[in-house]
Nucleic acid binder design. Sequence first.
DNA 1: CAAATTTGAACAACCGTTTGCATATACATT
DNA 2: AATGTATATGCAAACGGTTGTTCAAATTTG
Lengths: 341, 341
Amino acid sequence: MENKLPTIKEIAKRLNVSVSTVSRALSNHPRIGLRTKMQVQELARELQYEPNIKAIFFKQKKTYVIGVILPYIREDFFSEAISGIETLALEHDYTILFGQSYDDPERENKVIDAMKRQRVDGLLISLSKQTNKYDHLLSLEKYGIPVVYFDRVPPFEQAHKVYCNLYQGTVEMVNWLFTKGYRRIAFINGPDKLQASKERLDGYIKAVSARKLKVDMQLVERTDLSRERTYQAMENLFKLKIPPNAVITFNEYVHMDAIQYAQQHQLKINKELVFVSYANLPITAYTAYPPLASIEQYPYKQGEKAMELMIELLRTKAEDSAVKSYFNEEIAGSLILHEGT
Amino acid sequence: MENKLPTIKEIAKRLNVSVSTVSRALSNHPRIGLRTKMQVQELARELQYEPNIKAIFFKQKKTYVIGVILPYIREDFFSEAISGIETLALEHDYTILFGQSYDDPERENKVIDAMKRQRVDGLLISLSKQTNKYDHLLSLEKYGIPVVYFDRVPPFEQAHKVYCNLYQGTVEMVNWLFTKGYRRIAFINGPDKLQASKERLDGYIKAVSARKLKVDMQLVERTDLSRERTYQAMENLFKLKIPPNAVITFNEYVHMDAIQYAQQHQLKINKELVFVSYANLPITAYTAYPPLASIEQYPYKQGEKAMELMIELLRTKAEDSAVKSYFNEEIAGSLILHEGT
DNA sequence: CAAATTTGAACAACCGTTTGCATATACATT
DNA sequence: AATGTATATGCAAACGGTTGTTCAAATTTG
């Protein structure tokens, strides 16, 4: 029963020719006679022969496998991103090896090691929000495994990156709130370490100060993205003497937690205060209080772009590894207004 | 710069010994002298040698890679399932190769082929809802690549399966609605081909007839899971002379679409009619009208279980491939009531 | 018709590692 | 001194392919 996968040897033996002949016949080498070629090809078809890519890759020192590591596949943002990656990968005959870090640097390292052991051709990674040591990643590059970071990118220059710049989008969003008449705009930001937090904050400060207003740092809170910390942030904001009438949240998971807090505390959402956010996840359309506006971060596009760079890196690697410049691909986030505002 | 990954040969050359000696020294073979062993091990450490697992696997004819194919990673159900798979896989030193079918049999086959080419040790798959040909899958098993189906399982017996039985849960859910006083219970089912649809319907019919009531087939609708078809189903139900006062939806994506329809048509949700569903996704907690009750299908557990079976299959494969019985693992879905009912 | 050229196919090395078997010392035993 | 026996190491084959080189036969050329 256990039909072994047919090999080139098997074909050679049956046809009484050498393996090299079979190999060449299959790849249509001109030095092989027509008769032999036909015979080999027919038998191959008959046996449903498929070359053992592992053996070939092994020789070529390529695996055609790209590792992808992201924090939580549950988050729509990342499942969209991996879809972009996968689709492009498939088109170029790459396959993707999957791993989650669960925002835990230790697990992240474990997964990185597993991928290294599997000898992936390259690695796409969106960093855990806690990651602050980069040796594991850097060592990959030393061994010739290119790494492209996307969305959650490291703070240093020497890396290939794809991310969404939120600075301009944030400025736009704040301006939009101002034109709608909201003056007291709170901002619940994410973890300090993330570049994305810095960009958002810079945009916020820029937009507020452009109105010749002093930035009130009491209105700027921070959350580690846990529900508890978000509740805490909301509490701090709403016990202020003059509470905000608009809240910008770091992303829509924070948004939903903030909304829940607001509901529990009888705040009149969309009346006495409004919410705007980042990510523009489709799921919010189904929720009771979607953000009035949200900044689209194009996860699918980011994934695609990251994979595109990877393919480029792998293509040029062989040629001149001397030219060592880094890709730094910025996708501008854009403000999406939701219905009925 | 391009530090090649060090090989056993490299070490052998530097120490002027043979590769076999190095290999044995590293695996602590007793026939190697202490001095040599130490030298080899030290140099290995120094060069940060790591064995090329690909070469070893190639020899062993194992890859330690398990393919996972599912319809849409975006759906929480599947991202939970893959997390269960991944975690267990990692514990057993397996890595997972990822692919989505997007519910398209053609793409499904492409991905299956890619996985076959990559010579995965085994395949876990949740079928596309359109799949009705199984040759691609069956051919894998012929070549000794075990396949375990989860959640969306094929209709025939000869396959390893893990799924959630919804029959009993559905009976419970209908009974619960009855005790709450709802008598006119509609049912928006999913595609006929899915076993899951059949189970749900059987449970519904069983529970209704157990009350000595005649099953009114006007109350049973079907959707292909698209928003349009769900709207259509809702329309059919609510133009009945006596419209339902409770609706069971196939899953929570259908639920959310149905809710949207209800809102658009000024139906008084949770007043003149109530909704219950399947899947029990956490996201519904954030929505305006979560289902009053939902049947938990334990995606994480299903993923874990499927991987567990796979590990078992791979473990026993070597031994006696004669014993060819199929695993058929049923996990009972359970009714979860939501707050405030 | 011998020499040169083309054609078709086999040989062998290689990728990195493991492992059964052979070999070469050194030492102990008759 | 001859034999036996550990002990430590090397050789070579194997996994499934690719590819540069060699070699023999068939064909063309002068």
